[in-house]
Each structure stands twice: as structure tokens, then as C-alpha cells.
């Protein structure tokens, strides 16, 4: 790990931690949700670097959330660390099962297949009345290694937890993006034939990024359900996945922090517009995305990081 990356990670954590001191309750909740969803989006960004866009990350977001909820409600587990590990493990296993399958597809076929899988989960969960059907399930507030905070303390603890996860996941993904494998992924996005004729498997490259995306989706889903206290099949609905893609495109694939900035922007726009123009806010969001695509085709990240300057 280079010095500049260590410094960036430390700075990111300090900045996020400061939020715990200054943010009002409502904003802390909004930021925690945005960061949790940002983790899911970071997974899509990882796939985008290899040339794939998953339109079904809601699958892992939902799977992580339901796993955490079912484990908590069935076995009385409330520890946030344990819940995160368990639900991420389930997402990892599912990702490993579907990854090699989906990795043979490209472009719209990959997007639609990933979407189809998430909609299968959505449909199944909606029909399973013994786990709440379309109403979903509630989950109790988490504990932190035996500590059971309430009120503002709980809000703060959850926020700091997601902040730590964001910094760890963000740092690891940056290391991956800059690694030899990350470079091969960029090459595969660009020219598959070349990569295959150099002796590397593009399918493997895509499988790796898909599995990382599954893990990140699981972590995001677990934290989101703990922050909300409730999960329902909408977590896997296509509009949820669509928002993740929206954030990934807004952020672009160049910079990791921009993914979380984009996620926060989306969450803010949503809550403010919901308040002031409840019927037209999606329209506002769509226009905003259009402007970004036209002005910054490589996303917000291109403001801070150029492709050709990656070599630092």
C-alpha cells in the first residue's frame, strides 16, 4: 500500500468521522444510507472497469439484508459484525455460483441476465408469506460487540460503522483497480481479443469483479437494513438496481471517493425534491444525469483523476 493511498484513506476516515460530530440526526441517517448504497455502487464500478454493467445489484443488496434479518430474528444474533460477516458470506457464495455463468455474457446480455436474477429474487420473496411477503420483515437495532446504544448514540455508531466499511472497502478496491489484475480488467474492457491472445481469461477477469460486487452488495444491504430497521422485496426491485447504476454512471470508473459523493448527491436530491416537488423529482434526477453524461462522460471522478494519470 503506497503512502498516498494510506494518507487518502486516513483523510477520508477523518472527514467522515467529523460528520458524526456535526451532522444533525436526519442527515446522519441519510449519509449512512447513502454510504451503504455507495458500497453496492462501488461493486458496479468495479465491473464497469472491465466493461460490464450489472443491472441487478439489488440481488445482493436484498440478499444481504434478508440474510441479516433472518439470522437476527431466528437466532437472536444482534451483533453488527457477526451479521455483516454472515450475510456477506451468503452473498459471496451466491456470487461464486452465478459469477462464472454470467461472466460469459457481455453488454446488454450481462445487464439483462443480472437484472433477471434480481427480479427472480424479488418475485420469490414477494410470494413467501412466511417471511413477510411484500410487507417484508423488521429487524431490531444492532449491538456492537455487546454494546447496545440507543437514540443518537445508535445513529452515530451505525454511521461510524458504515464509514469504517467504506474506507476499508474503498481502499481495497483502489488497490485492486491499480493492481496487475485491475490493469488487465481495463485492457479487457478495451480489447478482449488482445487479452485472450496474451493468454489471460477475460471470463475470469469478469468473474472476479462480479464476485467483489456481490460481496460489496451484501455489506451494503446489511448496513442498510440495520439503519432502516426494515427490509422488503423492493430491495431487489429493478428500480433499486437502477439507482445503483445511476450512481455508478454519475461517479464514473476513475475515482473511488466520487462513488460515495455521487451516492450522497442522489440521496440528498431525492429527499429534498421529495419534499418540494414530490411528483417531478425523478425528472429532475434524469435531467441531472443527462447533463453529467454530456459534460463529464467519464463521470464525476474525471474531475479529480485522469485516466492517463493513473500511473501514480
Amino acid at each position: 500500500m503506497t503512502r498516498s493511498l494510506t494518507l487518502s484513506a486516513a483523510a477520508a476516515f477523518v472527514l467522515l468521522a467529523l460528520g458524526a460530530l456535526v451532522l444533525p440526526d436526519w442527515a446522519m441517517f441519510l449519509f449512512a444510507m447513502a454510504l451503504a448504497k455507495g458500497l453496492v455502487c462501488l461493486g458496479i464500478v468495479g465491473m464497469m472497469r472491465g466493461g460490464l454493467v450489472s443491472f441487478g445489484q439489488g440481488l445482493y443488496y436484498c440478499l444481504g439484508a434478508y440474510t441479516a434479518t433472518l439470522v437476527a430474528n431466528t437466532f437472536g444474533v444482534s451483533d453488527i459484525f457477526l451479521l455483516t460477516v454472515l450475510s456477506t458470506g451468503v452473498c459471496l457464495a451466491v456470487g461464486l455460483a452465478f459469477g462464472p455463468l454470467l461472466a460469459s455474457y457481455r453488454g446488454i446480455f450481462f445487464a439483462m441476465l443480472s437484472l433477471a436474477l434480481s427480479m427472480v429474487l424479488y418475485g420469490s420473496l414477494s410470494k413467501m408469506s412466511f417471511i413477510g411477503g411484500t410487507d417484508g420483515l423488521n429487524i431490531a437495532a444492532p449491538t456492537f460487540l455487546g454494546w447496545a446504544p440507543e437514540g443518537r448514540a445508535l445513529q452515530t455508531a451505525l454511521y461510524l460503522y458504515v464509514a469504517v466499511m467504506v474506507v476499508i472497502a474503498g481502499t481495497l478496491m483502489r488497490i485492486y483497480f491499480d493492481s496487475e489484475q485491475g490493469l488487465i480488467a481495463l485492457a479487457a474492457r478495451d480489447n478482449e481479443l488482445r487479452v485472450e491472445y496474451l493468454g489471460a481469461s477475460v471470463r475470469n477477469v469478469n468473474t472476479y469483479s462480479y464476485v467483489f460486487g456481490a460481496v460489496l452488495g451484501g455489506i451494503g444491504g446489511t448496513i442498510a437494513v440495520l439503519a432502516l430497521g426494515h427490509v422488503d422485496p423492493e430491495f431487489a426491485f429493478w428500480t433499486t438496481s437502477g439507482e445503483f447504476v445511476f450512481v455508478a454512471i454519475l461517479a464514473g470508473y476513475l475515482s473511488v471517493p466520487s462513488v460515495f459523493v455521487a451516492a450522497i448527491i442522489l440521496e440528498m436530491v431525492r429527499s429534498f425534491s421529495n419534499l418540494y416537488f414530490p411528483n417531478t423529482w425523478q425528472l429532475a434526477l434524469g435531467i441531472f444525469l443527462l447533463i453529467v453524461i454530456v459534460v463529464l462522460p467519464d463521470g464525476l471522478g474525471s474531475l479529480v483523476r485522469r485516466r492517463k494519470g493513473d500511473a501514480t
Binding site: L183, L186, R189, A200
Partner: peptide, 29 residues
């Protein structure tokens, strides 16, 4: 790879053909 520089194209070839398997940790540059 048109989006990569000449050096990066060469680095990709080197990473795939190195003495070790391409790493997830070691910097590509």
C-alpha cells in the same frame, strides 16, 4: 488497447506473462 498508453499496453502483456500469476495487490505500474 486504445484507452491505454503504449507503456500500459506493454504492462498488461508483462502482467499476464510475468513469472507469477497476475496479482490483485501488486501495483500494475
Amino acid at each position: 488497447c486504445n484507452e491505454l498508453t503504449v507503456e500500459e499496453n506493454m504492462l498488461v502483456a508483462g502482467a499476464i506473462h510475468g513469472n507469477h500469476r497476475p496479482s490483485f495487490l501488486r501495483n500494475g505500474h
